[in-house]
Every structure is written in C-alpha cells, then in structure tokens.
Design a protein around this nucleic acid. Structure first.
Lengths: 346, 346
DNA sequence: CTGAAAGCGCTTACAG
DNA sequence: CTGAAAGCGCTTACAG
C-alpha cells in the first residue's frame, strides 16, 4: 500500500537519501554510474515520487491552477484542454477551478491555490481591478491573465483583438446594405464584450446612415452555458419585436448566437432574408446550423498554448519583463450574413 | 511572501501548535474558548492552510483526480463541471487529466495521482480490463468508474443504460417505417458504444424484415472532438454511397451525429425525407440544427453528481459495499426522425 | 483540555 | 562526488 521512499532505495544501495535525491532529480554532483544505479533501483522497486513531500520541501508544487468561469463553456473547454496538455509536458498537474465569475468563489480558489503552493496560475479574471488577484502577487506566484487585462498590467496576458473582429463582422453586414444593426451583448460587464461592442461602433460610425442598437441584460442572467443561451434568446426577441426592428444582428459570443438563432426561429423569421446574423466565436458545427453562421473565430488552440507557455517561461524566469500578447480572431464568412444568399438570388 | 504558519498563531497566543491544529481542524479535545481565540488569531494573521504539509502528514491530499479522455468533448465538459462543483463543496481540489484514451498517458496520470496522494479518483476507463487501474486498488485509493464497467467490478460505478436508449431510438425509426438502418458507430472499442449497438440490434431483431448495417472506423481515427466529428462524416459518406443505401441512420454519439449531418448536407440529401437521422447524446443547440435532431440524451448533471457523491461517500467509508448505479437516458423526439415532417405532410 | 515530541518524504546548505 | 543533519508545516500518539 505505502510505496517505497528514498530510504528504501538508499538502503538497497547502501547510500544516503541525499544521493538518491540528487540522482533522481538529475542534478550534477553525482557520478553518472551512481545515478544509473539509483534510477535502476528506483524502477525495480516501483518507486513513485511523493509530490506532497516535494511540494512541502521545495515550497512549490508541480501543479498549476486554471481559474476560469466555466469549463462547460466550449471556449474554456478548448483552452483548458490545450493548457492541460502543455502542463503535462512540463510534468505539472492542473487544478481546475470554475468560478462562475463569482468573486467570492474566486477568492476561495485563490486560497486553495496558494495553500497548494502551485507553481503558477492561469486566470480568466472576473474583474478588471486587481482585487483578489493581489494575493497572487503578494504570494509571488507567477500568473497569466487570460483574455482580460488587469488594471496596472501586473501580469503576463493573452489577449484577443475583439474590437477588430467585431468591426470586421459588422462592416461586412454594412457592405451587405444593412443600416439598422442590433448588437445583442448578453452583458457588457466584462472588457472583452465591451471591446467587441466598440468594434461594432467603429464599423457603424464609419458608415453613412448606419445606426447601432445595443441590447444587453443583467450580469446575473448571463450565468452558465444554459443561462447565457437563454439570455440571448430573450434579448433577441426583445430586439426583433421592436416597432422598427433591425435588419441585422451582431451576437457577442457563441452562446448568445445560438440563443439568437433560436429566437429567430421562434419568431418565424428567415435568416438572412428577414434578418442577417453574425456572431463572435466559432464551433466545429456552426457551419451545420440553419443557416451556416458567419463568425469571428478566436484561435483557442493558440490562446491556450500561449498562456501556458508564458506561464512556464515566467516560472523558469520570474524576473523577465511582463508581456501581453494579442492574437487576432479570424472571420469565417458563411451564409447567415447573406453572402451565398445574395449569390443565389443574383 | 511566506504566510503565517501554526507556529506564529501558537506564539501569538502562547499555546502549542498542537492546540492550533486541533482548534483549526474543528476537533474535540480543545475548549471552545480556546478554539475561538485560535480561529480569531488565525484570521487576523491572514493564515492560509498549507495543503502540501497537510497532505504529507495525513498521507492524503484534499484533492480528487478526474481522469477522462478529453474535456473538450461536451459530455465530459459537463460532467467535469458538476464534479468540480461537488468537490468544491467538500473543499477538495480537482486535478484534471485528459488521456485521449491512451493507456500510456493514463499510466502517467495515475502515477501523478498516486504521488499526489489524492483522496480519490473518478475515471472514465480507457479499457475494460483493470490494467493500470490496479495501481489505484493497490494504493487503496477510492475510485469511481465513469460510464464503463471494469472487469471484476472492483470499483463503484455510474453507468448509463445505453442499450435501452439506442433501442428506443431505433424502434422509433422502425415505427416510421424504416427497414434499412445504418448504425454509424465511430468505433466500438468501448463498451458504451457496444451497448448502444446492442440496443440497435434489439430493435431491429424485433421488427419484421428490418436489417442493420454497422459502419465503424479505426480507434485511432476517433481521436479528439474534431477527429470523431470527421470520422462520422467519412463513415456516413461511405454508408450513404452504398448501392442500396439505408433509409435511416443511428449515430453513436453527439460528435458522430454532427459529422453525419455534415455528410448528409454535402451529399445534397434532405433530412428526414431522403434519410432519417437519430443520435445518442444531446446538446443545448441540437434543436437548432437543420433539422432539429431526435436524440437519446444522457443525464450529464446526474451522472457527474452521482459519481462525485459516490466517491465522497467511499472516502468517508472505505468499507462500504461496492455499488454501481445505472441511470437512464431520455429520448427527445424532434424532427430528424421524420416526426413533424410526417405531420406536416399529412 | 493541553503540550512535547516524533515524523510524513523529501531537498539542500554544510562539511568532508 | 557523497553524507549527516536540519527542516518545510503540519498531525497525532503519548503523557499529563
């Protein structure tokens, strides 16, 4: 039940545990012949390193924390997947924490991470203020902010150029002749949403006679996958029921897009003829929706990989200068914007 | 940087660290007045418990391992979400491990879990044989098997009645008059798939003149969300290109369903007129597909919650008898099976 | 109810 | 290159 420790290995070879430690850690200061013997003995005894002991002694666990709002959100699921893979390459475990954007929950998890002596944390901050994250700073724990800039830029960060993506999407709508455009935002509590909204405004401001209606809900409604989805539906019904309804809709994220499409279907409207739809975020099946959705896709694989690599670089070198990398989204033009429909009808 | 320890708290109060430990652990054998003082002092010093030290001393970490093939798979993402929530209620962290159904990777993670002294593990086994999982048994680590029975039933388990779900779905197809049915399986390497296939056979065997064609790929192709998706597409194209094609398709899981729908679209077929489609697994947007998909939905929330609760019960009482709970899927009849289409046309 | 002491399994100055 | 020893921050018999 209890596996062998350094003591058993050391005894088997008649050496000290210090030597075993050095050999197994791959340190210099131990003869290569000795190192070989130790490794062999360890293997033959079925030695398995005790991570708790290591963490206690080194004051640092071979684990990183991943603090996000919800793994069930496909965006975070993909990012988590990639991060976990990179962490495994570095022989680090990942502690998964879902905060639901709740500051209290975030605080709880930060206590846990710090108590766990994690080597680092990747966090999608619930707010722009440093707030609870200050503790990470105080504890000297390397941290990477995911998708949100933290006030004062105390952390490395991976950011997406949301504004450019939204601008491109809405400009495309305008090229299709749309002038009355609604932005179904879910909530603009988070900076990414606000940047996307700014992108919408950029596009509308640049076009003669175009106007933007912003529809948003309460932050408390945009909770969880299902909640966000339903919020999108509700907001869209509100927007489209307006006496002078928009002719095109921008959806602030993938979940909202799905909710908007459901609303459109319930109202018996056709896309893109009655209402054009574009949205932020892509998913593998978005080209299977009715109609295939035109989107700005975030490079989730790149986002996750960059965040993880930034973190391990900082763990290796805590004094390197803080840096933020910004990755661009990619627009995939499909049919919900009116494209192939235009072609089909002339 | 380094937070206070029991030593600081003990010194501040002029007591021993043993008393601090007892008070903070909520143990009896310490006066309630003393306990109160300790808690207050701890709070005022900003004490944060050192989980590594606890884990080392108690030979058990307040963490559980979650070993699945891929969080990016929506099924696992949802289950992971629920499990993480229950773990948090028990003040346990969760270590996320994606194995990609790779036994070597699974082995690596088991080493990690055992080295971490996790309190327990929830695992979606890569194989039916005990295999690497024997180590969990040897190490005496409470374990719950997710969705797959392990040979000899050494673990608690949460299982789904895949067979019944598939049977109901295919029977429904048969009621619609279909006789040539294809089961697009992805791979039948795993028992859930095989049980689903058995359910298809049950339904077909019970119907006069009905026949089932099984289409499956290599296990190496069904890797990752994207891979499974594409495998479904490829297999469907193969099945539908047959000289005597089926009139209805059963899709073995949600990812395969999406792939099949894409294949159908590429081939220019209409659902359900040219080909009826039903599938295992549901997702919040499956009613938005073209056409809305008829499915057998797994109760993911219940699965995750049951698994986590079983685990914490066993952690609390390692000697309770092993038990497996089987939960039923729920069929949601939508349009891809032909239902509303039948109504619409008379 | 409380304390002194040992020890969980490692790592790392220090000495040789 | 190797070892003896201290110690990371806790918990827990044992004694009182």
């Amino acid at each position: 039940m209890a596996g062998p420790t350094y003591r058993e290995i050391a005894q088997a070879l008649g050496v000290s545990t210090a030597t075993v430690s050095r050999a197994l850690a791959g340190e210099l200061g131990v003869s290569s012949e000795m190192a070989r013997q130790v490794r062999e003995t360890a293997a033959s005894l079925g030695y398995r390193s005790n991570r708790a002991a290591k963490a206690l002694r080194k004051q640092r666990a071979d684990a990183i924390g991943l603090v996000i709002s919800d793994v069930e959100n496909p965006y975070f699921a993909s990012v988590a997947r990639v991060i976990e893979g990179v962490a495994a390459e570095h022989k680090h475990a990942v502690l998964l924490c879902n905060t639901d954007e709740d500051l209290e929950q975030e605080q709880l998890y930060l206590d846990l991470m710090i108590g766990e002596n994690v080597a680092g944390v990747i966090v999608a901050p619930s707010a722009e203020k440093v707030g609870p994250l200050q503790q990470l700073l105080d504890a000297g724990i390397p941290t990477v902010a995911l998708d949100r800039r933290v006030a004062g830029d105390p952390f490395d960060a991976v950011l997406v150029d949301h504004r450019a993506g939204a601008r491109e999407l809405v400009s495309h709508l305008i090229e299709h002749g749309h002038r009355r455009i609604a932005a179904v935002m879910g909530t603009t509590a988070a900076t990414p949403s606000r940047e996307r909204l700014n992108g919408c405004r950029d596009a509308v401001d640049a076009a003669e006679g175009a106007e933007l209606t912003v529809i948003e809900g309460e932050m408390t409604d945009a909770v969880g996958v299902q909640g966000t989805f339903e919020l999108g539906e509700r907001l869209a019904i509100e927007a489209l029921g307006h006496p002078e309804p928009p002719s095109a809709v921008f959806c602030a994220n993938g979940l909202i897009s799905l909710g908007v499409l459901r609303a459109v279907r319930r109202l018996g409207l056709r896309v893109p003829q009655d209402i054009a739809v574009v949205g932020f975020d892509d998913q593998p099946f978005f080209d299977l929706l009715d109609p295939p959705l035109t989107v700005a896709a975030q490079p989730v694989e790149e986002i996750g990989r960059t965040a993880a690599e930034q973190l391990f670089q900082r763990i290796a070198d805590p004094d390197r200068t803080v840096n933020a990398v910004v990755v661009p989204p990619t627009v995939h033009v499909r049919r919900s914007c009116g494209c192939e429909f235009d072609q089909a009808t002339g």
